[in-house]
Amino acid sequence: MNIKNGYFEKKMHEHIFKNYEAKDKSSLIPLLQDIQSIYGYLPEAALQDISDFVDMPLSRIYGVATFYNQFRLTPLGENIIRVCRGTACHVKNSSNILFAIETALNIKAGETTRDKKFTIEIVNCIGACSIAPVVTVNEDYYGRISVKDIPNILKKYSKVSKKDNLPQPEVNLA
């Protein structure tokens, strides 16, 4: 997506901005969510565009973006592993599950593997407490799992590359 001068991105951002009112401060968080849903993270250029659009200093936007768990400022891996660390999962030893995934991928929670295949995230509670401990990979749920299940789950995702069938955002460049 590296088109020179960021023309493409700028157009795409304008496309998103159409749904919002300029200078409306309350649209900041929804805007950040929309931007993140495109890129998977919040690129600096996008934050600058938002800053101009909502007429807020970049520092404030950066402050908001770093406040909430949902926003990330670095690109994510292809597969996002979310380990639930809610109370119910904790009681059912989710710390061991997390540790096992961390050692298997050789990264810590919040990091991405060097081949950009996996990112591990910790979530506070995904509300599926009754099937604790829970891990989700992308959109798939894995409930009532144990450490022994980890290698198989990871294997499933390390094979296929998701890149090829990623939907490209539709943008009207006219």
């Binding site: 109370t87 119910a88 999962c89 904790h90 506070n124 509670c125 509300g127 599926a128 407490c129």
Partner: peptide
Amino acid sequence: DEGDPGAF
């Protein structure tokens, strides 16, 4: 905004 871990 149900944030309590263990509540759904």
